[in-house]
């Protein structure tokens, strides 16, 4: 079933701090936005990598956590009612005709926009693939980095590797379906929520699953079919029999499909000018950590500036021939009306 095409002014790829501030800057110019992000919430690296760590170089906020910065940017962008599409990766970006871009995601969403803003930071967050020798041969048949359909794992002998929330959540969720379940972690201490850890320990005590402490050293099996792994722990080496393995080692950033969109790149960054922050394709902009230009600093505050200047050019594309009046939020009653404060 194909979803209906969404028509909008602007598509912002990436819901990190720069993407969120772009909603605000474009919004002041009456440009409506849809935001697409591969994660399940806004904030990008700020909420994924360091939600609780303080940031000290946001102007006027001497100290702010990644989560709080995100919350505040969301609040600032709220009057403009952007639509968010989470858990989706943009796979295709194509110019169609003079004034339209077609954006497609891996979840089947299709958007048609007048301009596109790439605010994708370090690229898309993707599961880390542990460098176990020969793992590639098992991917997609015996080794999985995420769970799309739980039913796929029914009746399997599952090995889950890791000690965070993903590892523990999937251990608990898949255990009732599995033929056998083993959790393998490098230490008998878990980052995951204590409640999940307790539940897991109860299952182990009840003999419904195994917990092993150690690290995988070798994958066994052939023709893409895993039969077990060899592991090493404090007390020596041991084997775990399994036909399915789910390693959860967190996320890493990969440039991903951005490289395929025909934009000029320099060392995996999108080259832009410093007046409009436009890419080599007119109408496609790039702001924040993903762009590069002489003197570029990968700072959140630089991305904010880039969002403001980008928006000026975006306005010209969306309202050809119309004069853009520069206004301040402190004094313009029309801007204040848009912000809902007038």
């Amino acid at each position: 079933m194909r979803a209906e095409v969404i028509k909008t002014d602007a598509v912002i790829i990436g819901g990190g701090p720069c993407g969120l501030f772009a909603i605000f800057e474009l919004g002041l110019l009456d440009i409506k936005c849809h935001v697409i992000d591969i994660l399940d919430r806004a904030g990008g690296q700020c909420t994924e990598l360091y939600p609780e760590k303080p940031i000290y170089d946001i102007p006027a906020l001497p100290i702010v956590s990644g989560q709080e910065l995100t919350d505040r940017l969301m609040e600032q962008a709220r009057p403009f009612d952007a639509q968010f599409h989470y858990n989706q990766m943009v796979t295709e970006l194509e110019k169609r005709g003079d004034n339209e871009f077609v954006v497609k995601t891996d979840a089947g969403t299709e958007l048609h926009a007048k301009i596109v803003v790439i605010a994708a930071g370090g690229g898309s967050f993707q599961p880390k693939k542990p460098p176990m020798p020969g793992i590639d041969a098992f991917e997609g048949t015996s080794v999985f980095y995420s769970v799309r359909k739980m039913d796929m794992f029914r009746g399997k002998d599952i090995l889950i590797v890791g000690g965070g929330d993903s590892a523990l959540d999937w251990t608990l969720n898949l255990q009732p379906l599995a033929n056998s379940m083993t959790l393998l972690h490098r230490r008998d201490d878990f980052r995951a929520a204590p409640d999940s850890v307790n539940k897991m320990r109860e299952l182990v005590a009840a003999g419904k699953m195994d917990l092993k402490i150690g690290q995988v050293t070798e994958l066994k099996g052939d023709n893409g079919q895993l039969t077990g792994v060899a592991a090493k722990g404090k007390e020596g080496e041991f084997d775990v029999a399994c036909n399915t393995m789910l390693p959860f080692f967190g996320l890493t950033m990969k440039l991903g499909p951005v490289a395929d969109w025909g934009l000029n790149l320099n060392e995996n960054l999108i080259t832009v000018d410093t007046e409009k922050f436009e890419t080599s394709v007119p109408g496609i902009f790039a702001i924040g950590d993903i762009n590069t230009y002489p003197g570029k600093l990968k700072l959140i505050l630089s991305g904010f500036h880039e969002a403001a200047l980008m928006s000026q050019q975006a306005f010209r594309y969306i309202n050809p021939g119309e004069r853009l009046l520069f206004q301040y939020t402190t004094s313009s009653s029309s801007l204040q009306k848009k912000l809902g404060v007038a």
């Binding site: 880390k128 542990p130 460098p131 176990m132 890791g162 000690g163 965070g164 972690h185 490098r186 230490r187 201490d189 980052r191 690290q215 080692f249 967190g250």
Partner: peptide, 11 residues
């Protein structure tokens, strides 16, 4: 750091 090392390989 101990928590973060869970994300490293061959610790």
């Amino acid at each position: 750091e101990e928590d973060m090392l869970d994300f490293a390989f061959d610790v």
